[in-house]
Amino acid sequence: MTAAEIARSSAQEPPFRYGGRVPPGTSPVSLEHLMLTREIEERLYYEADLLDQWRYRDWLELTAEDIRYWAPLRRNVRFGEWEHEQSEPDGALAWFDDNRATLERRVLQLESGVHWAEEPLSRVCHVISGIRLVDVPPSLDAVSEVTVRSRFIVYRNHQEDEESLFIGKREDVLRRSDRTWLLAARSIFIDQSVMLSQNLTILL
């Protein structure tokens, strides 16, 4: 399969939805695909390093002006009614539905030193895995934007004995800029219905 064919077939893949039909993955057979995947992996691992080193301001600078950072609620639904499993992208509540301005405020709060839920700052570890490109328009030869899925396990230890674990999927849109890939959209699917941690004070 050529690079262009891979790009075309994966562009048809629907957005991630729990219980939704996901077509068989396309094999990354070309060297370009492999190199692009590696580049995107490096970008996601770098971002995890920034977040785990409390470099929230540096993380913010790697986000696009028009970013949407969204984490829907997850519902318990009957068999087959999976279209209602997560809160709708528009008009519904979500754990997060931030833009650049509100992410900036989250970072300001984390940097304030008087944010009790993060004072002292938590020890955080982002484990990112299962990185897979699902949309590469317009073609691998002239990539401007990619959609990438990943799995995350994020561990948070606060104070002495307080532990939280956030596990789920992400679907990101990364946009190529002069120097790097900017995060243009992040959808976070936390695999919990009721949030079992007392709060979620960190960026996923």
Binding site: F96, H115, E118, M195, S197, N199, L200
Partner: peptide, 13 residues
Amino acid sequence: MRYSGPTGLTEQD
């Protein structure tokens, strides 16, 4: 959403 709940800027605390 920004204010309330476990992810809200105010209610996190």
